[in-house]
Each structure stands twice: as C-alpha cells, then as structure tokens.
Design a protein around this nucleic acid. Sequence first.
DNA 1: ATGGCATATCCTATATGA
Length: 271
Amino acid sequence: MKIATFNVNGIKTRLPHLLRWLEREQPDVACLQELKALDETFPAQEIRDAGYHALWKGQRSWNGVAILARGSEPLEIRRTLPGDDADEQSRYLEAAVGGIVVGCLYLPNGNPQPGPKFDYKLAWFERLIAHAESLVASEHPVILCGDYNVVPTDADIYNPRSWLKDALLQPASRECYRRLLAQGWTDAIRHLHPDAPIYTFWDYFRQHWQKDSGLRIDHLLLNRTLAPALRAAGVDRWVRGEEKASDHAPTWVELDLDALRKPRSAARKRS
DNA sequence: ATGGCATATCCTATATGA
C-alpha cells in the first residue's frame, strides 16, 4: 500500500498536476493540503473520475485538507484537531482507509516570528502532540502525514543560514517535532534514508528548484503498530519540475500490511 | 533589511505562504 502526502498550493490551479500524478504514481491514499478552496468548489467529480473517493474540509482562500483513497471510501473519524473549539482553520482530517487510521494535517506556518502567528503554530503543535499521544500506542496502525512546516534538523535543508529567523527552523518548532517523535513515531523518510539530503519543498524564489535548494517539511509518521510494515519511502520530485508546479512535491511511503500479521502468529506459536 | 515568486479574493491591491 502506497500512502502519499502532497501540499498542492491551490486545488483549482493544481488539478491537472494532481490528476497526472495520481495517474502515474497510483497512490492508494493521498493526503492533500492547502486546497485554498471552499467545500463546494472541491473538484470531487474529476477526482472520482480518476478512480478516487475523497473526504475534504475546505476553507475560503487558505488552508484546506483532503484524503483521497483509490477504490474504497475513506471513513471519516474526525475533521478537527481536538483542544480548541474556537479554531476555525481547516487543517486536520482523520479517516480509516484500508484498515489504517490516516491523519492528514497542515500545521501552521508560523511566520513572522515572534508574533501571534508563531504563537498559534506552537499552540496547534501542542494540540497535535496531545492528540498523537492517544494514537501512537494504538493497536491499530496509524499514520500521521502532511505539511508539518518544520525543518527537523539542519540536515533537512540545503543551507540554514538564510532561514535562521524563519518559523520553520526555530528551536521551539523543532523541539515540538522532537517531542512528537519521542512518543514513539517513526519518521519514515529519515528512518530509511538516515544520511541522504531529501527535500520536499523548494520555494519559488532565486531558482531554488533549479539549484536543488530545498527543505524537508512534509513528513509521514508511523505509529509502533504500523512501523514494521515500512518498506520504502521517497519523494516524487518530477512533480515539482512540471510547468506551474506546486512548491511542494508529493512524499510517500510503501507499506507491506501483510507483515503486520506474521509476528503475532509467530508469537502465538512460541507461547 | 529586503525581496525575490505564487495563489486567492471584496482583483490593477492586499493577505498569506515558507
């Protein structure tokens, strides 16, 4: 099973790119962020025609998340992150797909910092950490994927120098991500590629894509139950090279769900 | 310190992104 996350930066503008990518890479599950569209303008029919069922949570102009599933209906679990009923921003969606709990998230950017937007980022992160605590030890396989808007370490950016004041690299942001991982989550890309420079985002400025001056900010986290199924992880960089591309590239994991059953039967035999 | 580019909307100006 292939699960991917893709910040599309506008579903309306990026629909042709999304459809080409779905057609070529055939992910079983695709988590989308930054729809920048109202619920009623989500292109459900075009996505259905491509073979995908979808859940979405839109918002005018900004944010917006969706979960697409090939050939099966994603079953909605929740459409908000717990902890703040006053939070109106569409940044979280959670569903059951093919026996896996999939959380799709778009963590606040937080710029400029310091300031209210950075405070909101950290508050949102704390809510995510609290909710993730209830998911990490679940007997069900869980994946939390999306645009975390955090560069975890200096190995996850081409050069931190010009980003030192950015919200994505702040020690407070990184500390939240570190605490999240410390609950027991596996950062799939970094686990399988411990030393390689791997990026998922290249901004539109200064020919950063052409120079491969990227950042790793889109992450797929696996809980303890799901981690043994991890087989491969990567970035579909070709999507970033297309005309009028999003500034993010789709990032994915390949899972062998059959592997989750074998240890249990082996344990039974041993006892 | 600023801006470079891109997207969306109450669209030739402004807010947001990262």
